[in-house]
C-alpha cells in the first residue's frame, strides 16, 4: 500500500508540474496583462506609469525567465506573490479556501446523502410512480441553470420570506463569537450549499439507482433471498453496501472538482471563496494568483482521488494493489 501511495504521489507531482507549465503559457495568451489592467483602472496613464507597472509585475523579464522563477518558487512550496493585491498568493488563497471548503463540503454531503437515499428508494421501487417522481425531480434540479435556481431562491427566501440572508459568509460587524458565530455562518450557508447540493444530487440519484439495480441481480443477492432474509435487510446490507462502490469512485472525482468550481454560486451569493478569487484574478490578469488557485485546486483533486482510491481498496479487497 505504501508503495502504491508513493507511486501515485510521484505521478501526481508530474501531472501538477505539467498543469503549471501549461497554464503558465495559457494565461499569458489572454489579451492584456496586469499592467494594462492597472493602468486602465487608474483613470489616466502615461508611458512612465505603464513602464513602472511592467517592472512591478516583472513583465519586462523574458517569458522563460518568468517561468523558471515561478517553477523555482513552486518547488519550494512557495506560490509566489500577488503584486496587484500586495500579498503572498498563499495568504490570499489561505484566507479564501476555508469558505470554499465549507460551502462545497456541505453541498457535497447534501448531494451524496440525498442522492444515495433517493437513488436507493427509486431503485427499490423501480418502474413505479415514486421512481419516476424521484428521477424526474433529480433531473429537474440538474437541468435548471444553477444560477437561475440560486437567484430564485434568494428572491423567495431572502426577499419575500426574509428567512435567510442573501449574501456573504457571516453578518459583518455583528461581533458574534463561538456558537453564535457558527449559527450565523450556518444561516448564510443554507442557500448556497443547498442550491449547489441539489444540482449535484442528480448524479448520485442516477448512479445509486443504476448501481443498485445492477447489484440486485447478482448471485449473492439471490442467495440471500433464498435464505429468506427480509427485503429490507437485503436492500440495506447486501445491495446498498455493494452498490456504493462506484458511488465512492464518482464522489472522489466530484469532491475534487467541487473545490475549484463553485464560481457561479460564489458569485451569486457573494461567498468569499476561491472560485470567485480565481475569476477576479483572471479578469485582472493576476497571473501568479490565478496559477496559484489552479495549482491548489488541482492538488486537491489529486489528493481526493488518491484518498478515494485508498478507501476503495480498503472497502473492496478484490481490487489488486498493483495496477
Amino acid at each position: 500500500m505504501a508503495g502504491f501511495i508513493a507511486q501515485r504521489l510521484a505521478k501526481g507531482v508530474l501531472v501538477l508540474a505539467a498543469i503549471v507549465v501549461l497554464n503558465f503559457f495559457l494565461i499569458r495568451l489572454a489579451p492584456g496583462d496586469p499592467a494594462v489592467v492597472m493602468a486602465g483602472e487608474a483613470g489616466a496613464t502615461d508611458e512612465i506609469f505603464v513602464a513602472q507597472l511592467r517592472t512591478k509585475f516583472a513583465l519586462d523579464q523574458s517569458l522563460p525567465g518568468q517561468l523558471a522563477a515561478y517553477l523555482g518558487s513552486i518547488a519550494t512550496l512557495d506560490l509566489g506573490y500577488s503584486v496587484r493585491q500586495q500579498m503572498p498568493v498563499a495568504t490570499l488563497i489561505g484566507e479564501r479556501l476555508p469558505a470554499t471548503l465549507l460551502l462545497t463540503g456541505c453541498a457535497f454531503l447534501i448531494s451524496i446523502a440525498l442522492g444515495v437515499l433517493l437513488g436507493a428508494l427509486a431503485a427499490r421501487r423501480a418502474g413505479s410512480l415514486a421512481d419516476t417522481a424521484i428521477t424526474g425531480l433529480a433531473l429537474l434540479f440538474y437541468a435548471t441553470p444553477l444560477f437561475w435556481v440560486s437567484l430564485m431562491a434568494i428572491i423567495l427566501f431572502s426577499v419575500r420570506l426574509e428567512w435567510l440572508p442573501s449574501f456573504g459568509f457571516e453578518t459583518v460587524g455583528a461581533g458574534y463569537t463561538g456558537l453564535a458565530r457558527a449559527a450565523d455562518i450556518a444561516q448564510h450557508l443554507v442557500l448556497p450549499a443547498l442550491t449547489l447540493g441539489l444540482f449535484f444530487m442528480a448524479v448520485y440519484v442516477r448512479m445509486t439507482r443504476a448501481s443498485m439495480l445492477e447489484v440486485s441481480r447478482l448471485d449473492f443477492v439471490k442467495t440471500a433471498r433464498a435464505k429468506g432474509l427480509t427485503e429490507g435487510v437485503i436492500q440495506r446490507r447486501h445491495i446498498l453496501r455493494n452498490a456504493l462502490l462506484p458511488v465512492v469512485t464518482l464522489a472522489g472525482l466530484q469532491a475534487g472538482t467541487l473545490v475549484g468550481g463553485a464560481v457561479l454560486t460564489e458569485t451569486v451569493f457573494a461567498w468569499p471563496g476561491i472560485g470567485r478569487l480565481m475569476y477576479d484574478a483572471l479578469l485582472q490578469r493576476d497571473y501568479n494568483l490565478l496559477l496559484g488557485v489552479f495549482v491548489v485546486s488541482s492538488a486537491m483533486v489529486l489528493i481526493f482521488n488518491l484518498v478515494t482510491d485508498v478507501v476503495y481498496r480498503a472497502v473492496d479487497p478484490r481490487i489488486e494493489v498493483a495496477r
Binding site: I19, S298, V301
Partner: peptide
C-alpha cells in the same frame, strides 16, 4: 492517460472560463 488526467485534474469549469477569456 497521463495527458487525459491533466485535463481531468484541472477544475473543468474554471478551465472553460479561462479558455473563453483567452480566446475572447
Amino acid at each position: 492517460m497521463r495527458f487525459t488526467e491533466l485535463f481531468q485534474t484541472v477544475p473543468s469549469f474554471a478551465l472553460a472560463i479561462v479558455l473563453v477569456a483567452i480566446l475572447q
